[in-house]
Write a protein that binds this DNA or RNA. Structure first.
Length: 474
RNA sequence: GUCCCCUUCGUCUAGAGGCCUAGGACAUUACCCUUUCACGGUAGUAACACGGGUUCGAAUCCCGUAGGGGACGCCA
């Protein structure tokens, strides 16, 4: 039987990085087995679902390269749960007709009161089944009832989960959850089960926070006589402090990673290694991931998110990326730092500078910050450290060398370096004593890529302009 | 509170009863390389939550304890 999986986010905000990890595992599992990976947007909560949010999710998925297989077969480009609400309602009503679900007229206020009371008494907070066995004649006027599942109250339920193992729960722990709301829209509990069945999903891969829902959804399958899919619940990703990863931890959305200059291949690689491993392998490109990934390798314990490690993985993929590609990716970040877009000539310079920039950065943002000086116009604002370099001696060095640089027959990195080395040797001073003043003059800072290379890239005219500007400045 | 799950270096993990003096990666420390900063290289610090079993032998199996996480909505 071919594998069919789905990723089913609700469009009520951004694409959560934890959700992306689940999607990645799901996608990898599907690709590994040559199956189909479907995208379903769970937009039944009309009050909270937004089109912007859907676009954000789609964007995130595309950025990560997690393409779904139903984008051409659905009119919207994905399966919309809300579009199928009639089907969900029909199933709910059928369950009532079959005696496995019932109408409940309890108001939300009434249920709130019930839960508060349970909490005060230290009892489990569960629906108490007050309408479970009441005859239809008791139905009050003017209240739109919900439909609840008539869950079994005795015995136990066992589900087999590929990751979590065989788990059994006493049915007395289950309550009668709402399947259809008073307004006729389905709840997640119903809609997800019905859609998974209708879409032919063979493997339900989702976050561990859905674990307890599984026991209850199992009854929907049973009541409808449907085959139960294979369940696989992924451990959650926690923040550095061990609690559920959220806004509080800084970067909960996939878009945050793009904005911070992480490469999608690095994010995927990092995410892949959370709760899953392949021996001692750390750098795992997508093709290898597809080859190696399977659900039996997924661990049960949650993982904490570590930005330092993500940074190092990102640094690896940055070094690996061709200069021109990287320059194109970094250009918007450089533009952000400079406050204006790069000209084609500047993009070309950025590309040529990339070999010097790449090994020094963990993110595109860092590349941009480091590269900004190449495109700087006017005088630099020097910090204390840089200003301190410019002693009268250093100024003399710069003045001497500026004159010599003007006379260089060929203005290349090697020529400038040879010139400076010869000068340092001749004067009996360290190379640093000539290189640092040049660095400050050309980059405006005490830290930069190798400075002779910078001079070579900037060219004679611009290099001399910057040196003279520094010499003119007090 | 009730139920479910989890527990190897700071973090991600390897580990399927003897290969474990517990391996790798990130982080961290020192040194080397070096025109600054990085990259790279070398070396180091650092963990089987605790307590009982089972066994000739346990990080690996069992039980308990503690700690952590998750779920308990007309959210998904």
């Amino acid at each position: 039987m071919p594998v069919i999986t789905r990723f089913a986010p609700s469009p009520t905000g951004y694409l959560h990085i934890g959700g992306a990890r689940t999607a990645l595992f799901c996608w990898l599992f599907t690709k590994h087995h040559g199956g189909k990976f479907l995208l379903r947007i769970e937009d039944t909560d009309r009050a909270r679902s937004t089109p912007e949010s859907i676009e954000t999710i789609l964007d995130g998925m595309r950025w990560l390269g997690l393409d779904w297989d139903n984008k051409d077969s659905e009119s919207l480009g994905y399966y919309s749960q809300y579009a199928h609400f009639k089907r969900h309602a029909e199933v709910a009503r059928q369950m009532v007709a079959n005696g496995v679900a019932y109408y409940c007229y309890a108001t939300p206020e009434e249920l709130d009161a019930m839960r508060s009371e349970q909490k005060v008494k230290g009892l489990p907070q569960r629906y108490d089944g007050r309408w479970r066995d009441r005859p239809a004649s008791d139905a009050p006027q003017g209240i739109a009832p919900v439909i609840r599942l008539k869950a079994p109250q005795t015995g136990e339920t066992t589900i087999r989960d590929v990751v979590m193992g065989t788990i059994t729960v006493q049915n007395s722990q289950l309550d009668d959850m709402v399947l259809l709301r008073g307004d006729g829209t389905p709840t997640f509990m119903l809609a997800a089960a019905v859609d998974d069945h209708d879409m032919g999903i063979t493997h339900v891969i989702r976050g561990e926070d859905h674990m307890t829902n599984t026991f209850r959804q199992a009854y929907i399958y049973k009541a409808m006589g449907w085959d139960v899919p294979v369940f696989a619940h992924m451990p959650l990703i926690h923040g550095p402090d061990g609690t559920k990863l959220s806004k509080r931890h800084g970067a909960p959305a996939v878009s945050d990673y793009r904005d911070r200059g992480y490469l999608p291949e690095a994010v995927n690689n990092y995410l892949l290694r959370l709760c899953w491993s392949h021996g001692d392998d750390e750098i795992i490109p997508m093709d290898k991931a597809i080859e190696w990934f399977d659900l039996d390798g997924v661990g049960k314990s949650p993982a904490r998110f570590d930005f330092a490690k993500l940074g190092s993985v990102n640094a690896h993929y940055i070094k690996e990326k061709p200069d021109a590609d990287l320059a194109a990716l970094a250009a918007p970040f450089v533009a952000r730092v400079m406050g204006r877009n790069l000209t084609p000539a500047q993009l070309d310079l950025l590309t040529r500078a990339m070999p010097d920039l790449k090994p020094r950065a963990q993110t595109l943002v860092q590349i941009a910050e480091m590269a900004a000086f190449y495109f700087h116009e006017g005088a630099f604002t020097l910090d204390d450290k840089a200003a301190k370099i410019l002693t009268p001696e250093a100024r003399q060095v710069l003045a001497d060398l500026a004159a010599k640089m003007g006379g260089l027959s060929e203005f290349t990195t090697e020529a400038v370096e040879n010139l400076f080395r010869a000068y340092a040797e001749e004067k009996g001073i360290k190379l640093g004593a000539v290189a640092q003043p040049l660095r400050v003059a050309l980059s405006g800072s005490t830290v930069s890529p190798p400075i002779f290379g910078v001079a070579g890239l900037l060219g004679r005219e611009e290099s001399l302009r910057r040196m003279e500007a520094i010499l003119r400045g007090a």
